[in-house]
Design a protein around this nucleic acid. Structure first.
Length: 596
RNA sequence: GCGGCUGUGGUCCAGCGGUUAUGACACGGGCUUCCCAAGCCUGUAACCCGGGUUCGAUUCCCGGCAGCCGCACCA
């Protein structure tokens, strides 16, 4: 009670950033007209382009520079996918709550000491076990409620009649896995290759909070990089080996202090499992820097062994430090080994192996067993095929002798040796089938977008007045240039409009604003992160020049109108520094003071 | 899901069981050769939703929804 008013008076950055984002059209709580629903957000007129530009930079990094194939799969998936991925069983927890103290428990955990594999039981069965064994609340001993399911996947029906269940995908990754055979053919049967997807995923979170950090509908950008498990080097590792970064490895976490080193060193010392993983951690680092995540408020944290999925070889999370929220995971990069493809092979019964040719064919002795099916067929009828298979699996010693003994699922059968022939032949083996390993970088685009806002937010003081600024990189800013006539008068408006048109033809995201005073418009644009303001004044009319104002320094340079577009393009690309863009304009203060 | 606190124009906030619900900022229009949230005139705009109590509810009560905090959950 006492803390409340204090907390309100002191607005922290989190509050300032979320308030700014709402007010200026970056992020809006969804469905407000109908009361809203937690875990859903709209990207407004500024948020949508910001997010889109971040996605485009991601494409630059992972689709264009790495040559990965971008695909687009349905957001609804059929049951089999999620049986294989484990989301159907693993993503759904049987819960029970205490009727007295309201504490919630995993029902299956409570009966672990009685039933070895509680996963196999239905909720009713688990509840029966709880009742029969008189299990009460571990906290207060109170009576436990019936067991209920909470699956984090949204379920729906495909077509009428409830015949086929569909689930909104909880991750985009499965789209790449289940297209593996077609992708493999697309890449002409050669490893390594990779496919990516940027799109929506859905998780029916129990309690979404913290704005856009935990959403029920969110955007992921995921890559599945299929590699030969025997070679986890990366051909372009040299390009990143000298990049320095702070590694928060398992060992470093024990010390409580991240360790800075190069990626080359990290692989050499075994901090990161191998080049392949390290390479993508490095690219991820570069991507995050490119969109404007602050290096001081970012770290790469290695999963603890107990935190890592049992099949994962190594896993690193990119984490950012956000105001109020602390360290938040925004990217996960894991070596998932062959787990996913094996699981899909198991459930779908489709071979997802890759034939990898040897450099030289290998000669090998091979035993060929030929059961006499003409004789075996009539004799064993339905079992004939199984008998033949059993015979084929025997070794030469077992095939010797008058009578051959086979084991058919426990049943011992004797076969006369005349019914089967065998020989040893030399064959040439040209390669082998392997299940590829998968490196999976998985990006939470909404979290990254929010982090960019949080890290870009900055306040300074100008003449005793607070100025809030989003120091967004020109590469992601939703408005790249604001064109501002000093006053809303025809002689200024006409040239200003011409500039707007010219810039738009060149693909600039331009805003044009005549309202209120010029200072107000500068502040407005500072707050939404517009890097440059072009001001059209009377010197434009008299001498054909305009000023460009730099958002961060508030300095201005004067350039000729004819050169404006070119200069802005150079500023945008980073080819030109602001100070070199034109004649410096003396600051407002100096202008006010009369010349001596 | 549980508990606590909160819900008034775009934003922040005042207020009351009863006439037309404050104020500031923001926003729109107008004026001014106006370069860093200026000035003057002027305008638009709100009691989260549903039920109950009451002659009358934005106000009191209950429920829902949403937000914040804590707990639980987060493959």
């Amino acid at each position: 009670m006492l803390l409340k008013p204090l907390a309100r008076i002191v607005m922290d950055n989190y509050e300032k950033v979320t308030e700014l984002a709402r007010r200026r059209g970056f992020l809006w709580p969804a469905f407000e007209l109908y009361g809203g629903a937690a875990g859903f957000y709209d990207y407004g007129p500024l948020g949508a382009p910001l997010k889109r530009r971040i996605e485009d930079i991601w494409r630059q990094f992972f689709v264009i520079k790495e040559g990965f194939a971008e695909i687009e799969a349905p957001t609804i998936g059929v049951e089999g996918i999620f049986q294989a991925s484990g989301h159907l069983s693993g993503f759904s927890d049987p819960l029970t709550s205490c009727k007295e103290c309201k504490e919630i428990y995993r029902a299956d955990h409570l009966i672990k000491h009685i039933i070895e594999v509680p996963d196999a039981l239905s909720n009713q069965e688990i509840y029966s076990v709880i009742k029969e064994n008189e299990i009460g609340c571990p906290e207060c001993g109170g009576e436990l409620s019936e067991v209920y399911e909470f699956n984090l996947m949204f379920k729906t029906m495909i077509g009428p009649g409830n015949k086929m269940a569909g689930y909104l995908r909880p991750e985009t990754a499965q789209g790449m896995f289940i297209n593996f055979p077609r992708l493999l053919r697309y890449f002409r049967d050669r490893l390594p290759f990779a496919a990516v997807q940027i799109g929506k995923s859905y998780r029916n979170e129990i309690s979404p909070r913290q704005g856009v950090i935990r959403l029920r509908e969110f955007t992921q950008a995921e890559a599945e990089i299929f590699i030969d498990p025997r070679d986890k080097t990366h051909p372009r590792f040299d390009e990143v080996k000298d990049v320095r970064m702070k590694f928060y490895s398992q060992a470093a976490q024990e010390r409580g202090e991240p360790e800075e080193m190069t990626f080359g060193e990290a692989v050499e010392r075994g901090v990161v499992a191998h080049q392949m993983l390290a390479y993508y951690v490095a690219r991820t680092y570069q991507f995050l820097l490119a969109v404007g995540v602050s290096p001081e408020r970012m770290r790469f944290r290695q999963h603890q062994s107990d935190e890592m999925a049992h099949y994962a070889a190594d896993c690193w999370d990119a984490e950012v430090l956000l105001d109020r929220l602390g360290w938040i995971e925004i990217v996960g990069i894991a070596d998932r080994t062959d787990y996913d493809l094996k699981a899909h092979m198991d459930i779908s019964k489709v071979n997802l192996k890759v034939f990898v040719p040897f450099e030289k064919p290998v000669k090998r002795q091979k035993l060929v067993v030929k059961p006499d099916m003409k004789a075996l067929g009539p004799r064993f009828k339905g079992q004939a095929k199984a008998v033949a298979e059993a015979l084929k699996s025997l070794n030469p010693e077992e095939l010797e002798g008058e009578r051959i003994l086979i084991d058919l699922g426990g049943e011992k059968i004797e076969i006369d040796s005349s019914l089967v022939s065998y020989e040893t032949v030399e064959e040439e083996v040209r390669g082998e089938e392997i299940v590829p390993h998968v490196i999976e970088p998985s990006f939470g685009i909404d979290r990254i977008t929010y982090s960019v806002l949080d890290h870009a937010y900055y306040e300074d003081t100008v003449d005793g007045e607070a100025r809030s600024v989003l120091r967004l990189s020109p590469a992601v800013a939703p408005i790249e240039v604001a064109v501002l006539p000093l006053m809303d008068r025809d002689e200024l408006v006409r040239p200003a409009r011409k500039i707007v048109d010219d810039l738009r033809v060149l693909g600039f995201r331009v805003d044009y604003d005549t309202s209120g005073s010029i200072g107000r418009r500068y502040r407005r644009n500072d707050e939404i992160g517009t890097p440059y303001d072009v001001t059209v004044d009377y010197e434009t009319v008299e001498q054909g020049t305009v000023t460009i104002r730099d958002r961060d320094s508030m300095n201005q340079v004067r350039v000729k109108v004819e050169e404006l577009c070119e200069k802005l393009e150079q500023l945008r690309s980073g080819a030109l520094k602001f100070e070199d863009a034109g004649e410096p304009v003396s600051s407002a203060k100096e202008q006010e003071s009369p010349a001596a």
